[in-house]
Design a protein around this nucleic acid. Sequence first.
RNA 1: GCUCCCAUCGUCUAGCCCGGUCUAGGACACCGCCUUUUCACGGCGAUAACAGGGGUUCGAAUCCCCUUGGGAGUACCA
Length: 527
Amino acid sequence: MAYLSLNGYDAQYAPLAQLDRVAGFEPVGREFESLRVRHFIQTGDDTMSVRVRFAPSPTGHLHIGGARTALYNYCFAKSVGGKFILRIEDTDLERSRSEYEKAQIQDLHWLGLEYDEGPDRPGEYGPYRQSERLEIYKEYAQKLVDAGLAYYDFCTEQELQVMKEQAEKQGKPPHYNGKWRNPEFNQEAMARLAAGEKAAIRLRAPQKAYVLQDHVRGRVVFPENMVGDFIILRSSGLPVYNFCCVIDDLLMKITHVIRGEDHLSNTVRQLMVYEALGSKPPEFAHVSLLINKDRQKLSKRDGATSLVQYTNDGFLPGAIINYLTLLGWSHPEEKDIFDLKDLIANFDLNRFSKAAAIYDIAKFKWVNGQHIQMQQSSLTLKNISSLFSVDHPFLKLTDEQKEKICALFKTQVQFYQDFVALIENFIFQTELNETEKMQEVLSWPSTAQIAQFLSTQSFDGHLPESALGQWTEYLKKDLGIKGKQLFMGLRVCLTGKDQGPELVDLIPLTPASVLKQRLANIQKRLA
RNA sequence: GCUCCCAUCGUCUAGCCCGGUCUAGGACACCGCCUUUUCACGGCGAUAACAGGGGUUCGAAUCCCCUUGGGAGUACCA
């Protein structure tokens, strides 16, 4: 027996004969007599390397909850040198659309979560779109029928409805108990099938308890009689989620299923399918859900839930990864800010919190700001340049000047867009700020003196850093202006504002023509 | 209804598995102070939580049970 140690968790890869003692698959209670476990699919070689998957339905844009699940899967795979697979679950023909598949793939790329195998990255275990695997599901469903582990069901929707209502009235669980589960009717079923009648296929649900050893939930016991015979193949021939998911995970040799907690109850059905197929289930990690301020599962109504909305709002991929990770997982060093590389190096399935998390936009913004601050100014410049109109004077500055400007505003910014506003405001805007403090400074006689003095100076191109020093020197020595009067006066005359970055940093970066215009505006005001 | 899951500052969380080091730590937000002759950044500080009740124990945030609250599932959706 081989043990694969994953971040301290000992996953047991036991021979199939010991199936019922393997972690994650531990049937208890009485066996269902007539059903014999059969080996249709062989998995579980001892050297199996980690393979995980992200399996979205292309029914909309990538949701932040989905992005988070994809992220956790990706991190886990990369942290143990495994493979990350993208599988498209498009068996719901009504709602699935190929443009959503494209959009979600694009979002994944944008986040930097590159998958090793997927619809557009063929691998050994394709195809990776469920709609292209329909024959496979039919084949396995048929095998289960042949083995007596599943059966055809000809009940109509109305019949099922009546059955359910009756069960409810009697206070029994609303499980299927129609005649078709009785092997006696097999012949009739075959005859009707041969006559071309359509039927769904149901799995005989073993009536016994199941135990799941989950990486985040711990030991979860599903009691006996929790679910009844459920459909695995619809009468239309399309498989149902709990069936195709298992077939695919098995055939794609998925070793770990990391997904939302909303799938926890489904797991018992999937365990039944694994058992019917005589296969060892993968390991599971059911991660807590993201919820809204009302503590409800996130829905479209909650505003910004799709990733594109965040990208449009100016959130950086790195910041999204960072923040999303923090919602339900914690860094072993209790760090709040980290990048994908750091995350992969420290990823650990044991560090998930079990409770659902509300996302807080304020912290999200702060994380974004931190990621901008960590950037080299040259990179920041590259990222903000496209936000200016093509003929904006900012773009005409030298690279050195532009980078210095970026560095100047870096600490007060949360989004790239903020740079644009700040630069416009402090570097190019010539109108005066109208505040009470401005009025006060303008009312000082010293301010008029400063303005008078400055108007005698020549302004050209960009002022050297020394200019400001010379001016203050002169104003102090010769005119006797000092302290607040001096600095606020200079600030108001040169920037047209009562607050802003350090003058020594700001003035050399401001075009002299702008300074001149502001000064003229001040003089006009004082006159 | 039934089944399962969850419960630490307003929010995200550390601690829980392996009880003492927890008068419960960090981060965001909020407030105050310092610094900066401005604003911001930065630094320091304040407010703020173990849902409730029982047990077990010398000792419980930590283990057990109950209650309450919240969530998910209960489909020929995924």
